[in-house]
Amino acid sequence: MLILECPYCGVKAEETELSPGYEAHLKRFGPGASPEEFEAYMFARKNPKGVHFERWRHTYGCGKWFLAARCTATLEVFGTYPAQVSEPPADIIAKIQARRPGWQPDGKVTK
């Protein structure tokens, strides 16, 4: 069972109170983009085994979209944060690195 704390209302919401919004921090490609960029924006999604950033909606609560950093392999939740950002905030990255030494925001692991 996955429990995520909604950063807007503070409810520790159980997975069934939420709706999944899949990968977070997608960069939008619109008019003027190449077909390849637009195709990647529309369809190409990361599917990592490990640290992953996702969008979730507190559907049965305050109704807001928020973002979550979690591990897809262990279901460990590193943190949740408001959606008005284009990349993971520093405190979330620090929390991930504390648990996954060497992990970098681009998904690479340095030794």
Binding site: C9, V11, T16, E17, T59, Y60, G61, C62
Partner: peptide, 10 residues
Amino acid sequence: LRRTRAAQVA
């Protein structure tokens, strides 16, 4: 005030 679901509805 807790917003949640009761079985299948808000």
